[in-house]
Write a protein that binds this DNA or RNA. Structure first.
Length: 980
DNA sequence: CCTATATCGTA
DNA sequence: GTACGATATAGGA
């Protein structure tokens, strides 16, 4: 055992050898050399041993190294791959005769008694960067033996590089030669220019030269990105803006980690005299005659007295070379899923295929002149026939409205391959410019005939239909009696892969993956006052826009579907996303009934109340002003009336939020109370009582919201136009609005909601036995928390104690901070901090859960739900502490909120079949995060509720068997308020 | 005319 | 303290 505990000091010289890189370069630079007796390739090994010998003897290499480590890449699975799965993904297979040299070089290192370092999840570069950083901190010189440009960011006055093949030193000047910037700017250049070898994306159209120039002009990457809008060159400016996030991702990839938790500390890589006999035995086994002789001479060893290392000699059974080489082979990959794009089918692994698709995607430029306008049925039949042959087709519909429930079909486009796309105009009308009478433009296939022709294609089990935000097109066509199946949705695939990391609309996806900017809708239809609906767009212009959408969708699918498989997210997509397209489309199609008379009456009542309050407000203020204007109100309260205790908003204006006014009201000020009352009425009137009736569809007489599947970072749905997920419930006045949501005659509304689902998931995920037990025993969870924390018995507990515990429980779900809890409970921050401390003492598992989640998110840039959904937080490592803390809280919350969202999605995906299987006519109408609302025939209510409850409670199975029970409460009533 | 800000409704 | 969307006002284009 050798003692390696010397302490590094400033006179030392730390030498770090990039082992893996050395082998590659030596293999290609040196003439092939094989061991005489068995033709084992050893060229790189020989070069390596010669270099080590020079180093330890300090021959032509001053000063003599005191510390030396040979550093290797260990596995392909590095933290960079977790950030960006395509990183270094297109590495070609190693040459046959190179593979056995890796283990031999490790053996050589050991034979020289030098440290051989490799660590899971880190590349050799990161390990070297960490050693260099630590050595520098002690004032020690460092030489990195490598010519890898990725290491050049480390060069400074203490750290130099040395190219072992060219025998030359690399200092700041050489780095400038290569990158056009000083070493401290190398990272920024690489972030912009990217690297095709390592598959670092960078910004399209920017190479090293341009990057260096831009950095000379703007200083650094962040400044450049912030001021990108100032750049004159159009394409360059657009790319810098569109790919800013990609540049930041690239920066993460190229920045070497300087704080790797080293398994072999710096002090342990001190150079020691080798055990000479073992070294000679190794060299002899390698049959390096010249070097063996030199080494033996230097140490005064009689050559013939040493036997070659028996493990390594030619013909040795199961020699280290071959056993270790086997482990270096490519990782086995499961077979790829369905796949139809040409050219990349033969590739071995899903990852390679995904990388190839990404690389190919930008290569075929979009050529709009090749799009066909289909105006006769024979041509349409031809396209349909070719789609059948191909087995997949991208489709996009064009309409005259964004509202899928009332939009008229204007035309549709199909795409079969890049640039092989067509547009089928159906209902275009004259521009109506006064010269020509409005009416159908001639030469369009009659709507019914066209639909009859494509229906068999769109409903054929054997042909995959591909859309972008397909729920919209599905609804349009469903209203014409066509139910598209099977299908894929590029927006949802992107959402599964990149939620939180990048947007999922067609234009950003196209720019990101295809390096192509599609025609803007405004360019064909105009914008603002001059905008026309798509049916009035000239067909020649419509073709380019519409066919391009199908073309782009198809190309996106080729890239994203391959990534989905490579990144192992097919199950998330197939179970949590894809089924929801038709489920939500059907919910939207049904809509919900509202009682317009009731809302109209409420609107009148609210108006009356507001008028009365306005009179009182003017009276108290001594003047009339608009109570709806925070600016005017702030001036009255804090200017004119000089009420103390005002706060400012981030923009410097007086804050007049409800919390501020509430406080003033409690101090006895009358005006703020009136304002609060007025605001409540104003909100209820404008947002609900007046707005909801305008959403009633004239044909159905019902309100059809639109649910967005890909709008949130956590996996929740969102609802808009109108938002039916924020219908009032907390106040008596508000519940009057909710009462206006009613069941159709002969039906009732059934509301079924998960009880405390996020807290239950907290107990599950944070593995907290006491919390879990409480749920298993059906206890009041907030009272139980209070009892644990404050030692108060549950029986006869004061309401205030329970209220505080409840606020803490919610706080935990939201990633708690003393500041937030203090705010919520109106208590001093110190007191809130003490509560949190106490909570963590009682529930240590939850603190561990929060710490683990933070650390995981920090390391990976995302968190995962129980079901594998990824929520990305690209700013989790922000330097700004408040941004970072915000992201940490969001990440902590996302695992819980997202897992709950997954569960209700699973329930929804199964609900239709469960109801149909039980011969029930209940229809799911709405989802409000932890609640589902159904419309159920009166006589089926008793039979329906148990089915709904069971599907919801069993939703995690079989993917996840929770140890905490899920509880669902369901009730039926004539209106939503009473059912809830 | 369009965008940003403040406010407030929900889970 | 998390996640959303709608409305009104205000101010620059």
């Amino acid at each position: 055992m050798t003692d390696r505990t010397d302490i590094v000091d400033p006179n030392d010289h730390v030498v770090l050898i990039d082992g893996s890189a050395y082998i590659f370069r030596a293999y290609h630079a040196l003439p092939p050399l094989t061991r005489t007796s068995d033709k084992l390739p050893v060229g790189a090994v020989a070069g390596f041993c010669n270099m080590l010998w020079k180093l330890v003897r300090a021959q032509g290499f001053e000063p003599k190294p005191t510390h030396l480590a040979v550093v290797f890449d260990k596995s392909e699975q590095t933290f960079r791959k977790e950030i960006y799965p395509l990183y270094k993904a297109q590495r070609p297979d190693l040459p046959e005769d190179l593979i056995p040299q890796f283990p031999l070089i490790r053996e050589a290192t050991r034979a020289f008694d030098l440290a051989c370092v490799e660590q899971d999840r880190y590349e050799a570069d990161d390990i070297m960067a960490t050693y260099a950083e630590q050595a520098k901190a002690r004032g020690t010189r460092v030489t990195i033996i490598s010519s890898d440009k990725d290491l050049m960011q480390l060069v400074d006055e203490k750290v130099r590089m040395y190219d072992p093949m060219k025998d030359r030193a690399i200092g700041a000047d050489e780095v400038f030669e290569k990158f056009g910037v000083s070493p401290d700017k190398v990272i920024d250049v690489q972030s912009l220019a990217g690297d095709s070898v390592d598959n670092v994306p960078g910004v399209p159209g920017i190479g090293i030269k341009t990057a260096a120039q831009l950095l000379a002009d703007y200083g650094d990457l962040d400044t450049l990105l912030a001021r990108a809008a100032e750049i004159k060159q159009t394409k360059r400016r657009e790319n810098l803006i569109a790919f800013a996030d990609q540049a930041r991702l690239s920066r993460e990839l190229v920045t070497l980690k300087r704080d790797v938790p080293l398994e072999v500390p710096l002090d342990e890589i001190a150079v020691v005299e080798p055990e000479t006999r073992r070294l000679v035995a190794f060299l002899k086994a390698m049959e390096f005659t010249t070097l063996t002789r030199r080494v033996a001479e230097a140490y005064g060893i009689e050559l013939s007295a040493i036997e070659p290392d028996p493990k390594l000699v030619a013909g040795a059974p199961a020699s280290v070379a071959f056993t270790e080489a086997a482990e270096l082979g490519p990782e086995p990959e499961p077979a790829a899923g369905e796949d139809a794009a040409a050219g990349t089918d033969g590739l071995a692994s899903p990852t390679e295929r995904a990388v190839a698709r990404v690389a190919e995607a930008g290569k075929t430029p979009v050529d709009r002149s090749r799009y066909e306008t289909v105006t006769d049925i024979a041509r349409l039949r031809d396209w349909v026939g070719r789609a059948f042959e191909r087995g997949y087709v991208a489709i996009d519909t064009e309409t005259n409205s964004l509202d899928a429930m009332q939009a008229e079909l204007v035309g549709f486009s199909l795409a079969l391959a890049p640039n092989e796309a067509c547009y089928v105009p159906l209902q275009h009308v004259g521009a109506g410019d006064g010269l020509f009478a409005e009416g159908l433009v001639p030469g369009q296939i009659p709507l019914t005939e066209a639909l009859e022709t494509i229906k068999p294609l769109l409903e054929d089990d054997g042909v995959l239909k591909i859309g972008q935000n397909l729920k919209y097109d599905w609804l349009i066509l469903a209203r014409h009696g066509i139910e598209i199946a099977p299908y894929d949705d590029t927006m949802l695939i992107s959402y599964v892969l990149d939620a939180g990391a990048s947007p999922h609309g067609m234009d950003p996806l196209s720019m990101r993956w295809l390096n192509h900017t599609p025609i803007k809708y405004e360019e064909v239809a105009g914008k603002g006052k001059g905008a026309v609906t798509f049916d009035r767009v000239a067909i020649e212009k419509a073709v380019e826009y519409a066919a391009e959408d199908a073309d782009v969708t198809l190309r996106l699918w080729q890239v994203l579907k391959a990534r989905l498989i490579a990144e192992r997210k097919s199950t998330v997509y197939e179970t949590l996303e894809r089924p929801l397209v038709t489920v939500l489309a059907n919910m939207e199609r049904r809509g919900i009934l509202i009682d317009r008379q009731m809302l109209s009456r409420l609107s009148g009542d609210f108006a009356q109340g507001m008028a009365r309050l306005e009179a009182e407000i003017s009276e108290m203020a001594g003047e009339t002003f608009n109570p709806g204007s925070p600016k005017q109100l702030g001036d009255i309260l804090f200017g004119k009336m000089q009420i103390p205790g005002g706060r400012k908003t981030p923009t410097g204006a007086w804050s007049t939020g409800a919390d501020v006014l509430e406080e003033l009201a409690e101090q006895g000020h009358e005006l703020p109370r009136r304002i609060l009352d007025w605001r409540q009425l104003q909100k209820l009137k404008s947002t609900y009582a007046d707005a909801l009736p305008t959403y009633v569809n004239p044909h159905s007489g019902r309100v059809h919201t639109s649910f967005a599947l890909a709008a949130t970072t956590t996996g929740r749905l969102s609802s808009s136009e109108p938002n039916l997920q924020n219908i009032p419930v907390r106040t008596e006045e508000g519940r009057k609005i909710r009462k206006a949501f009613v069941a159709a005659p002969g039906h009732k509304l059934v509301s079924a909601d998960y009880s405390q689902i996020e807290l239950r998931l907290l107990a599950e995920i944070a593995d907290t036995p006491s919390l879990r037990q409480a749920f298993q025993d059906g206890l009041d969870i907030h009272a139980m928390t209070a009892s644990e924390m404050f030692g108060v018995p549950i029986a006869g507990m004061p309401a205030e104690v329970r209220r505080r515990a409840k606020a803490i429980n919610f706080g935990i779900i939201y990633g708690i901070s003393a500041f937030g809890l203090a705010n919520q409970l109106s208590i001093p921050r110190e007191e809130a901090g003490a509560y949190i401390k106490r909570y963590f003492e009682r529930f240590p598992g939850i603190r561990a859960y929060m710490d683990e989640t933070r650390a995981f998110a920090r390391e990976h840039g995302y968190v995962e739900t129980l079901f594998g959904r990824r929520c990305h937080y690209p700013d989790i490592a922000a330097k700004n502490p408040s941004i970072r803390a915000f992201n940490e809280r969001a990440a902590i919350n996302a695992r819980l909120q997202g897992s709950a969202a997954d569960i209700i999605r699973r329930a929804m995906a199964r609900m239709e079949a469960a109801l149909a299987g039980a011969r029930l006519e209940a229809r799911m109408l709405l989802q409000v995060h932890d609640e589902l609302i159904f419309e159920v025939p009166d006589d089926q209510i008793a039979a329906t509720i148990p089915v709904i409850t069971r599907v919801m409670e069993e939703a995690p199975m079989p993917a996840v068997a929770l140890t905490v029970p899920l509880k669902v409460d369901a009730r039926a009533a004539d209106n939503w308020d009473e059912a809830h």
